[in-house]
Design a protein around this nucleic acid. Sequence first.
DNA 1: CTGTTAGCGCGTTCAG
DNA 2: CTGAACGCGCTAACAG
Lengths: 341, 341
Amino acid sequence: MIKPKQRLPDRKSKVTVREVALQADVSESTVSRIMRNQGLVAEATRAKVMEAVRALGYVPNRIAGSLASLDSQLVGVVVPSLSNIVFPEVLQGINAGLKASNYQSVISISDYDIDREETLVRGILAWQPAAILITGFDHTVATRRMLDQSGVRVVEMMDIDSAPIDVAVGMSHRRAGYAAGQYLIGKGYRRFGYVGHDWTADRRARLRYDGLSEALSEAGLSIVAHAIADGPSSVSTGREQTAQLCAMAKVDVAVYSNDDMAVGGVFYCQGAGIRMPDQLAVFGFNGLEIGRELPQPLSTVRSNRFLIGQRAIEAILSGLERPETKTTIDTGFEIYSGQTA
Amino acid sequence: MIKPKQRLPDRKSKVTVREVALQADVSESTVSRIMRNQGLVAEATRAKVMEAVRALGYVPNRIAGSLASLDSQLVGVVVPSLSNIVFPEVLQGINAGLKASNYQSVISISDYDIDREETLVRGILAWQPAAILITGFDHTVATRRMLDQSGVRVVEMMDIDSAPIDVAVGMSHRRAGYAAGQYLIGKGYRRFGYVGHDWTADRRARLRYDGLSEALSEAGLSIVAHAIADGPSSVSTGREQTAQLCAMAKVDVAVYSNDDMAVGGVFYCQGAGIRMPDQLAVFGFNGLEIGRELPQPLSTVRSNRFLIGQRAIEAILSGLERPETKTTIDTGFEIYSGQTA
DNA sequence: CTGTTAGCGCGTTCAG
DNA sequence: CTGAACGCGCTAACAG
């Protein structure tokens, strides 16, 4: 006695290669070949099959396809946040790089938490991606091990100040901080203040700070006042901490952990009637649009987030096997003078 | 004669349930049960298996799992852009809503192009998602048909001014525009200018404009000057178009297509020495952080993008079968007086 | 150019 | 509480 198959009740009468093959009176493999534009097929057959595909509204099941071909055409991405516009910018670059290919990106947000990142990486790896793009070098031991053993291409984005697992794409935050320090010293500033946000979460901000400190110390200078907030960076935090800084000490330049914070500083100065740069110079990091459009353009270091995403994709698309040698791609940075420092 | 299996050369000695079962000396089903915390298993067996899992670094293959269970645990998301911070904010809400569940989101960007959106939807549907979250009501006929036939839950986000395919979550942009108009008329403004960006791509901006026009016309007023740019919204476009508008006609209030544009207007006024709101009032839309932190907080309409994402997920997680009746969820909006209008 | 065969790795019965 | 059998929908290899 034959039992009717009856697993989950199908939402709709699902159409598979089978139905298409039946309708077009060809084999399943022929349908498969046509759907993937692979191999030679007679034009008449192709037309016949495509008509059946349209008639039935057939959409190939990628899950089955990936399992059979052992190739998921997926790229996993982990970024720490979406509230800071720089990460959406990186995603745009990734998106642009992927547009021409058949790859799909699967994006996860770690909230600057490396334990959560570990969970996310495990979840992504379960989808057998061709590559995984992750932010920075700061991972748990388990994450690093999983990534290493998985054998998939791994790109660590944003930072190039450490040795990558496979590929690193980004810029040297340490050197950027150093360059900023030299620039400001060259401009004649001597009493430096620093306005920042949570360092334990954002290691790159810390690297920039270290680079800045190094440049100052080489010139026999040091940072005379710090105003560092606990949470993430934001315009409001930048504004509040600038007030703090000004109450704390007399400085002639405030260096910020990033442009969001610096724009907050600019708004504080505008509100308090503090003239920039002569009463207080303001210097940011990133080169966001908002800073460029201020009545007085913000002095900052420009980084290229879009390019980082794009180069990351190029790096892995150029070869899906992980090579022996590790690669570091420097997308550079540039001091933007602006009018605030 | 038995042929050895020899498909694609595996990157690494891939570990599957089979290896774990062998190592732990149990059956594959037992391993499967344990990995999914499903069904009763003796504590001793569980411990034995988990040790093997750890030792081998086993990560279950979700692709195979999804195929077998006919359930992908995937949620597809399509947003038009990431450059406008409102969409990353929606994604954050989605992310928050998904955090507790086992679902993964697959995000695609349409670049405000409904033909591209169609391609993306087809690609996402191929992954057999449990639901698809898409932006607005403006889709191609084919997209609408695919979505409809797929049987999966569909949430149209941001807007509630049309009838949804399944669920709509957002706010009425038409009413928001109308409310803004009434507010500004109540404040005594009579000569209205409008500063906008590309309408054909951003239908919601158009709806707000229509609502505004309606309110004005009811009061016997109309918009006396328009400065509308071709491309997407941005701070720089807002700034430039404000200059245009001021050169064009004498208006006492400028209403902007959104806060990015309005902030550009504010910067223009600051630079040109135009006092807000008495010489020119400025009114935006969205309620972005940047507007709130300006020396003079921007007058605007607040919408809740995070909430939209969160509610969208709640809506589909509450029932994975598409119900007969369509649902509309209003996340509301609120006039924020600020100091610029 | 096209069909046949044999899995991909796992979840789901159902029997013990 | 555990195991065996079967199949999810598709693609790869090979034969014709």
